[in-house]
Write a protein that binds this DNA or RNA. Sequence first.
RNA 1: GGUCCCAUCGUCUAGUGGUUAGGACGCCGGCCUCUCACGCCGGUAACCCGGGUUCGAAUCCCGGUGGGAUCACCA
Length: 473
Amino acid sequence: MCANGDTMKPIVTRFPPSPTGFLHIGGARTALFNWLYARKTGGKFILRIEDTDEARSTKDSVDAILEALQWLGIDWDEGPYFQTERKEIYSRYIEKLVETGHAYYCSCTPDEVNTMREAARAKGLKPMYNGRCREQGLAWADNTVVRLKTPVTGVTVVEDIVKGDTAFQNAEMDDFIIQRSDGSAMYNLAVVVDDLTMGINTIIRGDDHLINTPKQILIYRALGADLPAFGHVPMVLGPDKARLSKRHGAMSVDEYRKMGYLPDAVINYLVRLGWSHGDQEFFTRMDLIEKFDLEHLGRSASMFDMEKMTALNAKHIQAKEPGALAPFVLPHLQDLGIDACDDTFTSKVIETLQPRSKTLVEMAAAARFYYVDEPELDEKAAAKFLTSEAAAMLIQAADDIEALPEFTQAALEDVFTKIMADSGLGFGKIAQPLRVAVTGTTVSPGIFEMLLALGKDKTVQRIRRAVAWIQNQ
RNA sequence: GGUCCCAUCGUCUAGUGGUUAGGACGCCGGCCUCUCACGCCGGUAACCCGGGUUCGAAUCCCGGUGGGAUCACCA
């Protein structure tokens, strides 16, 4: 909450992706910070598509970004707005800036400006536009740009929520272009006008924007507008400490969905990467909304660690109710050609797999044997455990289980106790052949929970099939 | 190179002048045990360096070093 005298102004945040690709992990994190802060304070979260680079922007990217946000459960209260649809608004503000003397037309060509830069560089100075048209009072003409008249002296201070106060010498800033010669607005102008007109008062973004901020502040001032609060969060780095990029592997949020990560886990991990709440590592979505704050945002860059995210994913898989997990598992089962239409059965299956699945892809693969009619026998497992010595025990197991009036854990325990007594075998000697008979492999959930989930008929049927297999050897 | 930001175990981090520097991931042991896991117990491992300030610095200041960002008629 932001108390401002006697008026309470709601927090308004935004996420402004460029639709030039998929929503990547780093972008998702900034979106998350803004979204959480808005939700936490009961404010508003606005989505804006910065598509003014029409050559690189695509509709497919817009769709991909929206879908990724939806999958993560990040919803927006306004938008998506598109900058390409707001060109007249920018023009109006640029005109106003020229009229009030805060900006001017400049007829210098790019070549001429380059020459100025080189001249400055030759003198050991910072390469900048030299302000030649600044006091000319030029009118609009073809190939004319608009530049902001920036202060020549003094400092512009960014009061940053996460970095603290940062001062920039105005002498370091040249009269930068706010409108191109084709009449379109430049990034810094468009952003400020958008944020201003959309009522955005809190801007959390990557610290690669920190250097843009004094320029934007100058525009706010020229417009006579109040400044929003800025918070620049550090970048996310790859394992080689370089800024996260394609070559670091899975970058897009969508890839994590495909690899079997839960949106809650992705959110949990991303937020923890650069924000903390004491020693707490596991957060539900509600936890996050309740506990997120700007005070505990980290100031140093962090490396993306997929192993830790995977560990967190495992925890979220365990924490969910089987029924709630099912909708997330189903698509992965479908990828394996499994049509799991029986919800009760699937919930039971999931429950047995929860403690032993790090991803939903793993879970689906491990669940496969439950659904197929005849699980394929692993060669080595069958050779080792489905032996002629095991046959008698398996036959007895099939017979006794089939005769069971109630298919319960207690009843199964009785069956195995009896087999152990009759055969003199230990439980392990019985369980492994049985496991191979029923699942085809040596690895599965615990015998009882697994058989119980599978059901009596399938259990008996599979044991008998294994016996037949032994007899055919 | 100029400007700006950053600096605690390998990684993510807690810490806001006095702690045996805590937690998590990973790794290594052990327990549990019908396999694999889960879980539990224990261990490994850090305050970048140098100066100050202070009775006392991971914490404050300065310098160095290292890493990152940015220097467009891109966003």
